[in-house]
Each structure stands twice: as structure tokens, then as C-alpha cells.
Amino acid sequence: MTYCCAIKTNAGMVFLSDSRTNAGVDSISTFRKMLVYERPGDRFMVMLSAGNLSISQSVREILQTESIRDPETGDPVTIWNARSMFDAAQVLGAAVRHVNHRDGDALRQSGLEFNVSLIFGGQVAGEGMRLFLVYSAGNFIEATAETPYFQIGESKYGKPVLDRVITPETPLQEAAKCALVSMDSTIKSNLSVGLPLDLVVYEAGALQSDRVVCIDNDNPYFRMLHDSWGQRLRQVFDSIEDPQWNGGQTDIPLRVASPRHPPLKKISTAHERLI
């Protein structure tokens, strides 16, 4: 399994992926799931992948040469000459469909579904940042102000903190911290996600980034974040009052008058107790 997330705010974008892949408890390996496409001053793009590793690796290779036709000129469009992130996302979708057409039937005959999901985001000179989630069929959706992040893979453990923190106005460094907390929560609860991590932080309009880091067990910031997050969660939990029933010494009792009926409770009869 894997976990990848990408966040788009007004200040920039954050991309984060783990590198663990496994085919059973005794077959665990490390493969990078992030690929950066950069031409400084012209375009900056990042792709994150989850799902069947052979499919995602094939898509990555074919993406280098795959193209679509410009509807106006008929010229081939690749990720390196696409005039917009939308056009580049269409090229990625075409690469996914190409692999499905080539390998999909063989996979299904072996009892495997064509399973791949991709996050693709960045910026092309002359337009704003854009972030897409690409499905196995090659179609995609775009992040919005209401949904400024995407997740793929084992997403449920890291979602709550993103929902509570991330908005379009979130500062870039705070968004990076939130992504790392989301990843730490996932690693804590799921053994199929693990270090090392790949992190890219992109500032809006820069069209390049030097904030690229591989995070392993020895990374001091991630170790501090892991320890602090666990300790602070415990402190917040302990600061919340325990539930008290009516009659307890509290202004916020758990049990109060309610129009809803209480749960059904069966009281055994004397005859039933003798059986």
C-alpha cells in the first residue's frame, strides 16, 4: 500500500509521498512514488502514484514520449510543450489509457484489476497553479477552493488533520507541516506505509523549487514532529473533561433530557432466569 497527498494553497503547493510497497508481510520493498518534471522558468510539475506498481512505473515511462494532438493545430502535445497544466493532465490521462490498452486484458486474465491513481500538479508559465487527481480510466478532476488537497492510497488515517487545518489561505510552511502530520498519523496506524518520505514544497510563481528532501529515520525535524504530535494529542485529550452523568459535578452532563428514545433494554423475567 502507499500514501501520497498534495496540497494547493494560495501561497504554493506541497507534495508528499511514502516509499513502501508490499506484496505480503514477507515481501516489503522501497520504491519512490514521486517524480518531478522541472524546466526552470517554464514549468514545474510533480506526479505522485499509488496502486499497482508495474502499472504506475509503465505510466511514468510512457509519459516521457506520450502525446495528444492539439485540436487547433494537430501538432503533438507532450508534458514538455503543453501550454497549460490541463493539457499536460490530458497527456497523463492518455498515458494511463495507453497502458490499460496494452496490459489491461492480461492483468484481468490473471485476476488483477487495472489499478492506478495519480496526483498531478504544478504550474506552467503564463497560468496559475493547478492540481489534478487522475483515475484508472485516465479521466481526472481538479482541486478547488473547497477541496484544496488530494490523497491517494491509504488516505483515511491522515484525512482528519487536513480537513481541520487546510484552507486556501494556509501559509505554505504550515501546509507542509500539516502534510507531515497527516503522513505521521498514517504511518502510526498502518504498517503498509513507511519511511523514507519524499517531500517537495513549491512556491507559487517560482517555476522551480529547491525545497526537495528525502526524509528518513534520522531526519531531526520529522523525529521531533512525531514525538511532539503524540505528546500534544495526549495533553489535549487529558484536558477534556471525562463524561459525567446527570447529577455529576459538571455543567455539561452527558445525560440530559432528550426527545429521542433511549436504547432498547431487555429485562429478563424470573422464568427466563431459571432456564
Rank of each mutant, 00 (worst) to 15 (best):
T144P: 07
L63P: 02
D210N: 13
L131I: 12
A206R: 11
D70T: 08
K33A: 04
A23D: 13
F150T: 06
S27K: 07
T73S: 15
R273G: 03
H98C: 13
F44C: 08
A94P: 00
R60K: 13
R223E: 07
R102Y: 09
D210A: 02
P160C: 09
L172S: 01
M34R: 07
V236I: 15
A143F: 03
I240L: 15
P171D: 11
Y135G: 04
H101W: 09
I62F: 04
S56W: 10
E174R: 14
V77R: 08
R223D: 10
E169Y: 04
L53N: 02
F31W: 08
D163T: 13
P76N: 07
V124E: 08
L191I: 13
S258Y: 07
L207H: 06
E127V: 06
S27E: 12
Q208S: 14
E174K: 12
S29D: 11
R97E: 06
D75N: 15
N22Q: 14
D105A: 14
P263I: 13
V14D: 04
G205A: 05
E61Y: 09
L53S: 03
L195K: 10
Q64C: 03
R260L: 15
N52E: 13
H101K: 12
D218G: 08
P71M: 09
G104Y: 11
D105G: 08
L195D: 03
F31I: 11
G93I: 05
E241T: 15
E127P: 01
A82G: 11
Y135W: 05
R20S: 13
P243L: 05
G126M: 11
R39K: 15
A94M: 03
Q109I: 10
S136T: 13
A206G: 01
L118R: 00
A145P: 00
L191R: 12
V36Q: 07
C5K: 00
N219F: 08
L118E: 00
D218C: 09
R20Y: 05
L180K: 10
N217F: 03
D218A: 10
P40M: 02
S17C: 13
L197V: 06
V134Y: 02
G121A: 10
N115G: 07
I267E: 15
A257F: 06
T170H: 01
G248Y: 08
Q173A: 14
V59K: 01
A6C: 11
I79A: 04
A88K: 05
